[in-house]
Design a protein around this nucleic acid. Sequence first.
RNA 1: GUGGGCGUAGCUCAGGUGGUUAGAGCGCCAGGUUGUGGCCCUGGAGGUCGCCGGUUCGAUCCCGGUCGCUCACCCCA
Length: 434
Amino acid sequence: MSITTSLPGFRDFYPRELAARSHIFAAWREAARRFGFEEYDGPPLEPLELYTDKSGDEIVRQLYNFEDKGGRAVTLRPEMTPTLARMAGARAGELRKPIRWFSIPQLYRYERTQRGRLREHFQWNVDVVGEEGVAADAEILAVALQSFQLLGLSAQDVVARVSDRRLLEALLLHAGVPADRLMAAYAAIDKLSREEERVIRDRLAKEAGLGAAAIDQIFRIFAHPDFESLTAAYRDVPGVAEELARLGEYFGILGALGFGAWVTFDPRIVRGLAYYTGIVFEVFDRKGELRAVCGGGRYDQLLEQVSGVSLPALGFGMGDVVLRELLADRELLPSGEPAGDYYLVAVGEPERRVVREMATRLRRAGWSAIYSLRAAGVKAQFKDANARGVRRVVVVGPDEVASGQVAVRDMASGAEERVRIESLGEATATAQRR
RNA sequence: GUGGGCGUAGCUCAGGUGGUUAGAGCGCCAGGUUGUGGCCCUGGAGGUCGCCGGUUCGAUCCCGGUCGCUCACCCCA
């Protein structure tokens, strides 16, 4: 039986797709580097218990888990944060705080595929551990936005919607939501931008057990068009003022970092993961055609739950699948042409040996150099060079060998230049190297 | 887990209401001679019409199942 396809929800990366992936990874790593984050990684297979209590039931329901040959309950990692929490917690004593780490793990979920969601994806994770101040929250979102900028996207293309669970909690308590109904209320509010108002009202009444008065109060919160309006209305409410002040400072820092236009306040952002405790955000395409490209926030209790070490932490994940779609829509993905440096054409059999020697010289100088692996006509070799997108072709025949000079043809312009064989690759070495 | 759409060459797709050798474009390969590509021309290879079963004299076309893809829901990275 021949196998020609991958498992459902898993991707093959042909050179063209891998070029796009590498392009995205390069932007992620560059943004992380500019912000001083160090790269780490962990195992793709983890004990099931790492996720069962910390991430919420829904993630666990869709784990790609199984029993290994040693009878251990294991799972392919669905997210990186618990791994990070374990690693950071284990060496919390020796690591300089705040820890600034990032990773690009491949993550797995067992669920039906749909647009932007597969059973496997790569996710850029950037986290700060050991800093409770709001400056860290701003820094985390800024590095995410920096990556978009590096990929050619602007504040016209994407927007970060930000909220704070502490603020939302204070507002909901003020609206009359009992403390033990907060999670149910969050779940309903999370649907606010997708469902009609009466559906949300219905859920708040049934699932959160709220009365009509409380529900009215809740909708009054979300009726405010922006942060200033909400602040004006609630700044005198006990417990809310300090939350508003913190968010205000947060927006101020992002403005100073040059990302003010990219960020907007949106109290409807809740995020599903159970461990978030503070500022949370999601980044969307402005056209609203795709699901969230990126999401994250503060999770101050998770390290203690996982490792027993109490350290505040925050971070985000940005998946490659939706991002790739967004970049493709905006025509911001590389074409994927290999674009080698040199293709060496041997006119006849005697020159094939010369070509190999030239290739070796070029390769040792750092250039890419290829030639036909079997004897072929000059025309065929040129066609091959052209089809492979090689930048320059060098023709080597009896005349060239005799004179010690070869013709180097620039394939894009068609211009040819005569170069001494010994100095091939030197003249343009600094100028044209990619 | 639930529901909708789709499944014909490597890719994108055509193939009125079932009928004899299933097509196109792109791609691929080979030519258009003797040392120069991209354009053009000619030719060629390549398909159990996803798979299994049913209806029928006969099915790519109808029916059922199955697998896969896809979109949405649930939920969420």
